[in-house]
Nucleic acid binder design. Structure first.
Length: 642
DNA sequence: GTAGGGTTAG
């Protein structure tokens, strides 16, 4: 065996030169390396690497190591790519050992690739060890580590590495910033980073911009996100997706849909991410018909799980469970989110038994429930008044599924006990909670007090709500009504004073209905709708007809008007009543009337909707901020508890 | 060789 000449070591072989080695006999397992020349050995190895023949390349590499033969960095990078593609962790480690085995320090380029390999194998410690040993680290070395930490949600470490990098005098590039932005979980850091980006002149990079848009919207700074978006001269489809996603996730569905139109106008077509966000916007706005239109485009991506989950949720939240079930049945894959969406969707829409059946099916299919799944299950129990089942699931969730009950789970049980009239037990549970009750917890109890007309406890619960959420106008109104009903005028004026002092005004009730893919909004006392006179006439006639079958407009609203619209002459014109009449006028006979509201539905409107549904033989679905009400044949799916 | 966007509750 001839000694290997220095020239041969780290011979630079470009991919275009691969053909040079094609004529060489491949290194068979029985080949005698002793008879092979160094160049033949190397040639075969290079060939195997570029052919992505991992087993043979690994064998050849072992032989080379025994003979002190080494290839060039580019060939090793091909081999590492091959290990990554095959998820061959052990082989990857051998390559690492091999390139360091001749006592030479490999090129920075190659070490960066090895670090990246460990990162992709989720072996962060190995990546870090390799990084620490490097005599020289360039921007790629630093960015690879920063990106790894950002992916692993180790935000502090990612930011720390940026600082260390700057201290070492390495200038971050657009890759560094788009990586580190993902690790940014505070506004102060974000503002600093944004300044840094502008300072080094990278603010026009599309990757950096889309990351900025994303982080600003995740930190609830939508205005800043929109600002970054508007300042852009060139936008690509990811930038569009970032802004549409940001808007949809921040409950600005209108603007998300608007930007989606602009995106199409700018010549970009929607991909899975775009459609997911558009569906989320439809979900928030309860736009069933627009959602159905989007569904047609979703069919192109029928194996995309996230997109299908968003579609499921859209149908559930728009109150069309038949569509949701049909999508669910056709899905190729279903994960815990698909099942949880169905369980919560069925429960919220009043199909508790079916929700629990889905939970059994989910377990049978081997999918493990998570925190949110159990919430849906408990919600289903509380909705159907299944006190024992609810308790069972609540008390066994830790043991069976390893999930600690959180505030929301307690909330479901408080609701369950409250619905069953067990108010004392509900209060006891609040005091026994392992986590601090919040405004939502107390509001849940307040809801139960409203249903069971427990004035003293309602006052107590309302005070607790206001301690934790002093801006909650609905609770002020409710408390003031309770005091008024008990002739406690001093307390009434105290509440009004507090409201004035804090600048809290009652939010006007608003209902939305979708007709011909257009949203029609009705606001209490608002006469802006072009057909308002016709609607008012229709409403008066309808009320007259309903009174004939026993409708008595309610006047006693204390403890009924939980966050609902005002109790006065305008009661007759509550926004959902206007929306129902408009629905009757505009939608074809027999089609469902679907309405979304910003406030809880009041007792009178609830009664009104039940009777209209019966008299007109219509399904009326009203989604308030908490619950869904399906009115059919004179009854509501909520069982008159909300 | 290093980078950006999407799903369940509240």
């Amino acid at each position: 065996m001839k000694a290997v000449s220095g020239k041969l070591k780290y011979l630079r072989t470009l991919p275009s030169s691969v053909s040079r080695f094609h004529s060489l006999t491949p290194l068979a397992s029985h080949a005698q390396p002793k008879n092979s020349s160094s160049s033949t050995l190397l040639g075969e190895f290079v060939n195997f690497c570029y052919q992505r023949d991992l087993p043979r390349a690994m064998k050849a590499m072992a032989v080379m190591e025994r003979h002190g033969v080494y290839a060039d960095s580019l060939t090793y990078s091909e081999l590492i790519k091959c290990c990554l593609a095959r998820n061959a962790v052990e082989q990857g480690k051998l390559v690492h050992k091999h390139v360091f085995s001749n006592g030479h320090q490999p090129k920075t380029f190659l070490v960066n690739i090895l670090i990246n390999m460990y990162v992709k194998f989720s072996l962060l410690e190995q990546a870090r060890a390799l990084f620490d040993q490097m005599p020289e680290r360039n921007v790629v070395s630093w960015t690879t580590m920063i990106s790894a930490y950002a992916n692993a949600k180790l935000s502090v470490r990612a930011l720390e590495f940026l600082v260390l990098m700057l201290r070492e005098g390495v200038l971050p590039n657009m890759y560094t910033f788009s990586s580190v932005l993902r690790a940014c979980d505070g506004l102060v850091n974000l503002r600093q980073l944004h300044c840094g980006i502008i300072k080094v002149g990278l603010e026009s990079d599309v990757f950096v911009r889309s990351a900025l848009i994303d982080v600003y919207s995740k930190l609830d700074k939508l205005k800043d996100a929109v600002c970054v978006f508007n300042e852009m001269e060139t936008r690509d489809y990811v930038v569009w997706n970032s802004i549409i996603g940001g808007l949809a996730q921040n409950s600005d569905g209108d603007e998300a849909l608007n930007q989606f139109k602009m995106m199409k106008r700018a010549g970009f077509s929607a991909d899975q991410s775009t459609l997911t966000s558009v569906l989320r916007a439809c979900t928030g706005l309860a736009l069933l018909e627009v959602g159905r239109q989007v569904h047609v485009h979703v069919l192109k991506f029928n194996v995309d799980l996230i997109l299908n989950n968003a579609l499921l949720d859209m149908y559930c939240k728009c109150g069309s469970l038949e569509d949701a079930k049909s999508v669910f049945e056709r899905m190729v894959d279903r994960d815990v989110i698909s099942w949880s969406t169905m369980i919560a969707g069925l429960a919220q829409n009043g199909y508790s038994r079916e929700a629990l059946k889905f939970f059994d099916l989910m377990k049978a299919s081997g999918v493990k429930p998570n925190y949110i799944t159990i919430l849906g299950v408990l919600f289903a129990c509380s909705h159907a008044g299944l006190v024992d089942d609810g308790w069972y699931y609540f008390q066994s969730m830790k043991r069976l599924y390893g999930i600690d009950p959180g505030r929301e789970h307690y909330g479901c049980i408080i609701d369950l006990l409250g619905r069953a009239g067990k108010l004392d037990e509900a209060v006891k549970l609040i005091h026994e909670m392992k986590c601090e009750p919040d405004a939502v917890t107390w509001r849940t109890l307040l809801g139960a007090c409203r249903v069971h007309r427990n004035v003293d406890l309602a006052i107590y619960a309302a005070k607790q709500v206001l301690k934790l959420d002093p801006e909650d106008s609905g609770t002020y109104v409710l408390l003031s009504n309770i005091y008024a009903n008990s002739q406690r005028w001093e307390d009434v004026s105290e509440i009004r004073r507090a409201m004035r002092h804090r600048g809290i005004a009652k939010e006007p009730g608003c209902s939305w209905i979708e007709v011909n893919k257009q949203i029609h909004a009705f606001i209490l006392g608002d006469t802006a709708h072009p057909k308002i006179n016709e609607i008012n006439r229709g409403l008066n006639q309808l009320i007259h007809k309903l009174m004939g079958i026993g409708y008595v407009p309610e006047t006693d609203f204390v403890l009924q008007d939980l966050e609902g619209e005002q109790r006065d002459d305008s009661l007759r014109y509550h926004s959902e009543k206007l929306a129902i009449v408009f629905g009757l006028m505009s939608l074809s006979t027999g089609s469902a009337i679907r309405i979304r509201k910003n406030l809880r539905i009041c007792g009178d409107c609830h009664n009104f909707a039940k009777l209209v549904a019966k008299m007109e033989c219509r399904l009326i679905v009203i989604r308030d901020p908490i619950r869904y009400h399906h009115f059919q044949n004179g009854v509501c799916s909520c069982g008159d508890y909300w």
